[in-house]
């Protein structure tokens, strides 16, 4: 049905967006929009995300931040079509994602989940080749395009020295680089990353950040990334979206979103925010508790929903 469209690798997107294909790469700036999304897990009582609309700016990095259980990973799963929305729709290049075939989606939209497992004895190179799955037919063997994409992805993820290593023998950080290379080999216009830096040592956190920065600066890929660390998010993102209890609390540039007021409301911390060359810098002072006086003018948006933990 939509195979045709997907094969053209996003030329349709240029029409719908009005964007001109000025980029030398084969990527076009693709849009990803979630409209009035209602997302529910079969096991949860009510919706985790209840009617939110989110737009990822084409060609930019959008960071989703929020405390544990705020629904940011759930929202990402919804955008990635891993979770079928109860209501609302996800539009990929203006097309309802539900109407696209699974492989057609995977050629345009890549997702790196929070925890990925693989057999230990698989080599990094073989893992990265799996990223070409949506581009290959059932009987098709590896094409030159596949090889080029894999080489590019391994290069970009900086794991060339790991190419022939077994995934089981890698450290957590090295594994993450290999997985990032896999999802980059998918060669999509949109890339969704779910907490790619969590549990990594500082060195590998910075490596991952640098990869995303490179993608932001040198390609037209639209990136949506869930980040635990709000400072990292502020440093990486063009746009930030702050969530709390499944509701979007703020949306804008890092400078607009990372404010002392928002940190108090969304993250329930008291902190000082100072502007630096790398974006806003946060100096946390103490955790706020229920009944603490709001230093900013209290408009009562803060809710005390206890069921937010189910979203994790």
């Amino acid at each position: 049905m939509s195979q045709n469209h997907a094969k053209t690798n996003g030329t349709g997107a240029e029409n719908t967006n009005g964007a001109v294909g000025e980029s030398p790469s084969n990527h076009s700036e693709a849009s990803l929009t979630g409209e009035d999304l209602v997302l529910t897990y079969p096991s949860s009582d009510g919706p985790i995300i209840d009617g939110e609309t989110i737009t990822a700016e084409p060609g930019a990095v959008t960071a989703l931040v929020g405390p544990n259980g705020s629904g940011k990973s759930t929202l990402l799963k919804g955008l990635a079509n891993q979770l079928t929305p109860e209501a609302g729709s996800v539009l990929l290049d203006g097309e309802d994602i539900q109407t696209l075939g699974t492989k057609a989606i995977a050629r345009k939209l890549g997702l790196l989940s929070q925890e990925s497992t693989s057999p230990n004895s698989i080599s990094v190179e073989d893992l990265v080749y799996h990223g070409r799955y949506p581009h290959r037919g059932f009987f098709e063997s590896v094409t030159e395009e596949d090889e080029a994409a894999v080489d590019r992805a391994i290069d970009l993820a900086g794991c060339g020295h790991l190419r022939d290593r077994e995934v089981g023998s890698l450290s957590g950080g090295q594994k993450q680089l290999a997985w990032i290379a896999m999802v980059l080999a998918q060669d999509t216009d949109v890339l969704l990353l779910d907490e790619p830096t969590t549990f990594l040592d500082l060195h590998h956190q910075l490596e991952v950040m640098e990869i995303i920065e490179t993608l932001r600066d040198e390609s037209d890929i639209t990136i949506v990334v869930v980040l635990h660390d709000i400072e990292q998010a502020a440093r990486l993102a063009d746009q930030m979206v702050a969530l709390k209890s499944g509701a979007i609390q703020a949306h804008g540039t890092p400078e607009e979103v990372v404010t002392e007021r928002l940190l108090a409301d969304v993250f329930e911390i008291e902190a000082e925010v100072s502007a630096t060359a790398h974006g806003p810098r946060i100096n946390p002072i103490r955790a706020r508790h229920d009944g603490d006086e709001h230093d900013a003018d209290d408009d009562g948006t803060e809710t005390d929903r206890t069921e937010e933990v189910v979203a994790e």
């Binding site: 990635a80 891993q82 075939g101 699974t102 492989k103 057609a104 989606i105 995977a106 050629r107 890549g110 997702l111 989940s113 990925s116 497992t117 693989s118 057999p119 698989i122 073989d126 893992l127 799996h130 990223g131 799955y133 949506p134 290959r136 059932f138 009987f139 999802v183 998918q186």
Partner: peptide, 23 residues
Amino acid sequence: LFSSRQLNVLLLGENTARSLGMS
């Protein structure tokens, strides 16, 4: 023999397989 690549992708777990476009 022809399905071996599908089997390999399935080994990456359901979530990854689905995000790679496998039904």
